[in-house]
Simulated scan of single mutants.
Amino acid sequence: MTRDIVRIWTLIHKWASLICTAFLLMLCLTGLPLVFHDEIDRALNHAPNIVATPGQRLLNDDQVLDIALRARPGEVPLFMSFDVDRPVINVTTGPRADAPESLMHFAPIDQTSGRIVAATGAGGVMDVVLRIHKDMFLGLPGLLFLGVMGALFVAAIVSGLVIYTPFMRKIDFGTVRASRSTRLKWLDYHNLLGVVTAAWVTVVGLTGVINTLSEPILAVWRADQLAAMTAPYKDKPPPIRRSSIAAAIATAQAAAPGMRVQFVAFPGGAFSSKHHYAVFLQGATPATKRLPTPALVDAETGRLTAIRRMPWYAQGLLLSQPLHFGDYGGLPLKILWALLDIVTIIVTASGLYLWLSKKKAA
């Protein structure tokens, strides 16, 4: 590798790192508690422990939906989701079918009693941390901006590996020249920790970039696959009367044996059409749980009209989300993710220190 090429890669590493450093530190610091979001949710959650006794008759989906709508007069159903560890159905309503998230109301309903209970999410501080990490409260512009920062971070990783290669010829791998100056010692720590965690930070960086593209990716899915699945209903007026939501869910499950319902999108929303219940089904394995399959059921007749797996680009997004937070291997993997996150903070902070100390010396 010629000296000019090394100089170019050094400039890429320097400026890519400097531009994204502040945002990378923010993402690492907010990402650390988000790795343990399930555990924090359970610790901060004060919802009652609801258990159905053997043989107890539970309220069905239609009865739960009726309770939710009576509690919110004038609103329409938007989504229905199902707790895995307790007999609770969550109904999201809003003033209209295309209501923004800020106008939605979330109601967890106990199937054993029909009462509206507390949600299992922690809310409060964790919601704020998630929004900061996700888009800095800026919506789509914030998402895309953090995506650019993530791309610069990946560029900094690749360029750092390139310029570390000739450095390796001078000293043994893992050498830390602790007896020399403080700056030289931290340079060795920065290089060593950066190389050791390079594979992990590349995966987390790339999945983070993919996650920032969630809204454009879902928009493409709606314009492409969802539009094709609902094309025969394009010019039909919305149904005046809707069929049973419980029957629609049963119809969808019958078409995909062995799968369970993840959530239901009601007619008129972004995940369905004006004429369909969109029943999203998921598998039982760690991978298939992350890959919902939408089944469209005619909201007027209750007839299944289409069922199709999500396209590759949507599957890539759905698989990158749990991989980004280490959210698929239990607590041991989360602890490993947290330790690597802390190492990344050290690498980032040491890089900033090296640049500031060099600038001061100059």
Rank of each mutant, 00 (worst) to 15 (best):
L11Y: 10
S17V: 06
T21F: 13
A22Q: 03
L29W: 08
G31N: 06
F36A: 08
H37R: 14
H37Y: 11
D38R: 15
D41T: 04
P48Y: 07
N49E: 15
Q56M: 07
D62W: 09
I67V: 13
A68V: 02
E75H: 15
V76Q: 11
V91W: 00
T93G: 07
T93Q: 06
G94Y: 05
P95N: 10
P95C: 08
L103F: 06
H105I: 12
P108T: 09
I109K: 07
T120V: 12
G123I: 06
V128K: 09
I132H: 10
F137T: 09
L138A: 13
L140K: 11
P141V: 09
G147V: 02
F153P: 07
F153V: 03
A155N: 08
A155C: 12
V158E: 01
G160H: 04
F167V: 12
M168P: 05
D172S: 13
T175E: 09
T182I: 13
K185A: 12
Y189N: 00
N191K: 12
V195D: 03
V196W: 13
T197K: 01
V201Y: 13
T202R: 11
L206I: 14
V209W: 01
T212A: 14
S214R: 14
E215S: 12
W221E: 03
R222I: 00
A227K: 02
P232G: 02
Y233M: 10
Y233V: 04
P239I: 04
S244M: 06
A247D: 10
I249R: 07
I249N: 01
A254M: 08
A256M: 05
A256V: 08
M259N: 11
R260S: 15
V261D: 02
A265T: 04
G268C: 05
G269Y: 03
F271W: 11
F271Q: 08
S272F: 03
Y277V: 01
Y277T: 02
L281H: 04
A287G: 01
K289Y: 10
R290L: 10
P294R: 01
P294W: 03
V297R: 01
R303E: 12
T305Q: 14
P311S: 00
L318I: 00
L318N: 09
H324D: 06
L333S: 00
L336T: 13
W337I: 01
I342L: 15
V347A: 04
A349W: 10
A361K: 13
